[in-house]
Simulated assay, not measured.
Amino acid sequence: MTDEKTDGSDERLSYEQARAELASVVERLEAGGTSLEESLALWERGEALAVICQRRLDGARARIDATRQESTN
Rank of each mutant, 00 (worst) to 15 (best):
V25D: 01
R19D: 06
A23Y: 02
R68E: 13
A18F: 03
E38G: 02
R19W: 07
G8P: 00
W43C: 11
A60M: 13
N73T: 15
K5A: 11
G46H: 01
R28A: 12
E4S: 07
A31H: 11
T6L: 00
L57M: 15
G59F: 06
E70G: 08
L42C: 07
E47I: 05
R28L: 11
K5Y: 06
L36R: 13
D10E: 06
D10V: 00
W43E: 13
A60P: 02
N73M: 12
E44M: 03
D65R: 15
Y15N: 03
A66F: 11
E21M: 05
G46E: 01
R68D: 11
A18H: 02
L13I: 05
A62F: 04
R28G: 06
K5W: 02
Q54L: 07
M1W: 09
G46Q: 03
T34R: 14
E30S: 10
A18Y: 01
E30V: 06
E30Y: 15
L40R: 13
A18V: 02
A66R: 14
W43L: 14
V51F: 01
G32S: 12
I52L: 07
L49M: 04
S71F: 14
I64K: 11
Y15D: 05
A20C: 08
E21G: 00
E4H: 06
R28Y: 10
E21D: 07
S39D: 10
Y15T: 04
E11I: 01
G59V: 09
A41S: 14
A48W: 00
S24C: 07
R68Q: 12
E4L: 08
T2R: 03
C53I: 07
